[in-house]
Amino acid sequence: MKNLSMMEAIREAMTKKMREDPTVFIMGEDVGAFGGCFGVTAGMFDEFGAERVRDTPISEGVIIGCAVGAAATGTRPIAELMFIDFVTVGADQLVNQAAKMRYMVGGKIKLPMVVRLPLGAGTRAAAQHSQSLEAWLAHIPGLKVVYPSCPNDAYGLMLKAIEDDNPVVFLEHKILYGVRGEVDENAKPIEFGKADIKREGKDLTVAATGRMVHEALKTAEELSKDGIEIEVFDPRTLFPFDKETLFKSIEKTNKLLIVSEENKRGSFAGEISAMVAEECFDNLDAPIKRLCAVNSPVPFSPVLEDYYVPNAEDIVKAVTTMF
């Protein structure tokens, strides 16, 4: 076991796979000697050199498109975009190329590629560097969507993402990069579609992703004092999604609160809510509740940004209305 930050865990997983497999390489803006926008690839250039830790021009379309072509022809690229917001610039290459190529050639091509997308609010970076766009990605058949909330999950899921023969989008919450935790470096890759119960409880299920997992966990003690034991469900991957574990949790608690940092309208939180309403309704004894960000662009003002993102206090309020 090793105590690592989320950023270090991602780096260690990539480094391990690059040592094992010479066809794995990284490319992205300033990922080389500079070490990446947030420092995730720091030091990797020194070990692997400019051929395998490749600085690209500021051209998100060709970063993703180049990964598609490289993956289709025998290598395993890891492409980094600086911010998930820039996926809009390279959207054709992800949505129409990466996600469709295998289907359109009748399964004759595989695309083992990872696209790393830092996301999330809370960094005072304003409306174009702070969004949570996971619902767009999870909507597209052909992509797998991974969203770890702690270093150990990030490590195991990154190992799996690189081994996977399909396009994987790997979401990294910027606020969580510095969060530390124990990482078992000899552990096996974490299978996609296996959720993790981050806290057990009998009274209410909180389904949360990324930073919201931590906000939910913060509330647990306080709610416990009021006699409410929440169970915190972290899907870890949005597609494939582990319905079974979620439904089992709801069978026990009979209540579901979904907490997400997305704009509420059209969010993946809505998808979770629909799944449960369609297939697990009989186990609910209260309406499903979604706690999401405000339906506004991510504001720049610190006061407004802090309000915009759901926090522990909001979660406590939401939970108490459900009893």
Partner: peptide, 27 residues
């Protein structure tokens, strides 16, 4: 398309293949 002959496919999006070609070249 015919992957066995290295043909990665005629693309439905005008110009999209140019990006993919860089990846095949890099590979």
């Amino acid at each position: 398309a015919d992957a066995t002959r290295g043909i990665l496919g005629a693309n439905g999006i005008v110009g999209a293949g140019q990006n993919i070609a860089t990846g095949a070249g890099l590979s």
